[in-house]
């Protein structure tokens, strides 16, 4: 009784340790996450409106943001297509090595980004395994935006597969069977029965991959070439501004990216609610 009187914001419980656990969480969260992020917002704001707009709309910042968002979007699309295909193959087909393949999907989560970066560069450089073949056809991959997109496909791949997989596993086969029984072709059934069911999860996964790709640094900088205005991603621009001790400039670009991340987070939460509603209806 007294507990609920002193803490009107908490449902009473017989379990111990609430104060200690919440206190520890809030203190560590504040020190590690909240206060430093607040410092970013304060630093960015302290630049003043005129400077903020000047930094945000400078040609170099705009080029970097355009490249980061553009390459991330392309990578998100590629991951959407192949992530759906891989999820389908892993859920619906049984073949030797399927479980191993399933485990390998998480490799981009486990492999340090710098390792992925130099490995992808070694492959796609003009003298690399695949880069040499591409060069024969006059295509330059490493040190161009195309190389950046390839690195971003690598880091984003698990998001789509892991979002779509559980939905495909739980999708009701009966609706599919009904569609086939009613005479629809496999193609038609895939297009108008299966796809609408997995669409929310697919969009969620692709958006997660997109969000991750915008901020990605380690796997990209080796393959990117890092030419200002051409192949310089937004996170690299922050690093360069920091190296020039332009703290305010770095904070403004950082704040722009953080706001974009928050916007995407809100969208992702909405998409996940959509997924749950869609699954609830089926």
């Amino acid at each position: 009784m007294s507990a609920s009187a002193t803490r009107p914001w908490k449902v009473p419980s017989v379990l111990p340790g609430f104060g200690l656990a919440l206190g520890l969480t809030l203190v560590s969260l504040s020190i590690i996450v909240l206060i430093p992020l607040a410092a970013l917002a304060i630093k960015a704001a302290s630049a003043g409106w005129a400077d903020i707009i000047a930094i945000a709309t400078s040609a170099r910042t705009l080029a970097a943001l355009r490249l980061s968002f553009g390459a991330a979007f392309v990578a998100g699309l590629v991951n959407g297509v192949f992530g759906l295909l891989l999820a389908w193959v892993l859920v619906r087909y049984d073949f030797p090595g399927r479980r191993l393949l399933d485990a390998a999907i998480d490799l981009p989560f486990a492999l340090p980004t710098a390792v992925a970066g130099i490995a992808l560069t070694a492959i796609w450089a003009p003298n690399g395994w695949l880069g040499a073949i591409a060069a024969q056809y006059g295509v330059k991959v490493a040190y161009t935006p195309l190389g950046i997109a390839i690195a971003l496909v690598f880091v984003g791949l698990p998001f789509v597969v892991r979002s779509v997989q559980p939905v495909l596993e739980e999708a009701s086969r009966e609706v599919e069977e009904a569609s086939l029984l009613l005479g629809a072709s496999h193609f038609r059934t895939t297009l108008s029965v299966i796809l609408p069911g997995v669409l929310p999860a697919l969009v969620t996964g692709a958006t997660l991959a997109f969000a991750r790709a915008i901020g990605e640094y380690g796997s990209v900088i080796f393959i990117a070439g890092n030419v200002p205005m051409v192949s310089e991603i937004a996170p690299l621009l922050i690093v360069i501004k920091l190296e020039q001790f332009d703290y305010a400039g770095a904070a403004v670009v950082g704040m722009l990216m953080l706001l974009a991340s928050f916007g995407l987070l809100v969208i992702i939460n909405g998409l996940q609610a959509w997924t749950r509603r869609r699954l609830g209806n089926v």
């Binding site: 969480t25 969260l29 996450v33 909240l34 206060i35 430093p36 992020l37 410092a39 970013l40 630093k43 980004t113 969000a211 915008i214 901020g215 990605e216 640094y217 380690g218 996170p235 690299l236 922050i238 690093v239 920091l242 001790f245 703290y247 770095a250 904070a251 950082g254 990216m257 953080l258 991340s261 928050f262 995407l264 987070l265």
Partner: peptide, 26 residues
């Protein structure tokens, strides 16, 4: 949501925020 927040922040920003706090001009 706040506990999950670091996953949606670019690693570069994760470094940047500490430079802004503790760096020579922080």
């Amino acid at each position: 949501s706040l506990i999950d927040l670091p996953f949606s922040v670019s690693p570069v920003i994760a470094g940047l925020i500490y430079v802004l706090l503790f760096g020579a001009q922080g």
